[in-house]
Design a protein around this nucleic acid. Structure first.
Length: 210
DNA sequence: CGACCGATTGACT
DNA sequence: GTCAATCGGTCGG
């Protein structure tokens, strides 16, 4: 950690545009401290959104809701959708750009009992890979029940990221079209870790890099 | 102010 | 595979 609380390597990633940052955030671990204990989730699937992207909330310029996307990289952007679900993004790029990376899927690393309680009220016994294998499930797993953290900086007091234990190799990363959108559906701006059991949907995909 | 709809999920045919 | 749930954001009148 540097003096301002942000890992140097992470800051370099968050300064990049969302298309570059989205694959680089694979393998990083989301950490949230709750009253019940610490939750850690390793990111295995992301999607990039940006202002020149008709599928992006930032496409038509800033609004009250999307203002965090236009801040400098390193903040959270959380929105409510379909009358039910919250989705978590990491804002990237320079101030004014309107870029963010949607965190779609993560695998539980720590605090599994808390995650299960957040997801299922401590009743059911779901399989491991179902705990955070979708953006709405992921926020539920983290205990996010509102948008009050939207616009906040990645920070120990809310949510922060820990570096990968092992770097994710370029040949392990797959790019595909994004999920659940109706614009720019052909763009390969979704990224996930190949063969990860939490990643369930597999539209036509290709490996990143060479 | 009314109408439309969504970066989803889970239940069901 | 299809589809309802459910409500705030956004935009048009």
């Amino acid at each position: 950690m540097s003096s301002n609380g942000m890992d140097k390597q992470l800051r370099a990633i968050l300064q990049k545009n969302s298309l570059q940052a989205a694959p680089l955030l694979l393998g990083w671990t989301l950490v949230r401290q709750t009253q019940a204990g610490t939750i850690k989730l390793r990111i295995v699937e992301t999607e990039a959104y940006h202002q020149d992207d008709p599928a992006s909330h930032s496409f038509r310029g800033p609004t009250i809701r999307t203002a965090p996307m236009f801040q400098a990289g390193g903040r959270l952007y959380i929105y409510f959708t379909y009358g039910r679900h919250f989705c978590l993004n990491i804002v990237t790029g320079a101030r004014g750009r309107g870029e963010a990376v949607l965190i779609r899927v993560a695998e539980p690393i720590e605090g599994i009992e808390i995650i299960i309680k957040n997801r299922f009220g401590n009743v059911k016994g779901p399989s491991f890979h179902n705990l955070a294998n979708g953006p709405g499930k992921l926020t539920q797993a983290l205990g996010i029940k509102d948008t009050s953290l939207s616009g906040k900086k990645l920070d120990l007091s809310s949510i922060f990221l820990e570096p990968p234990q092992k770097p994710v190799k370029a040949q392990e990363i797959v790019a595909s079209s994004r999920i659940g959108i109706r614009q720019a559906t052909e763009m390969p701006w979704r990224f996930y870790i190949k063969n990860n059991p939490c990643v369930s949907k597999h539209p036509k995909a290709r490996h990143l890099g060479l």
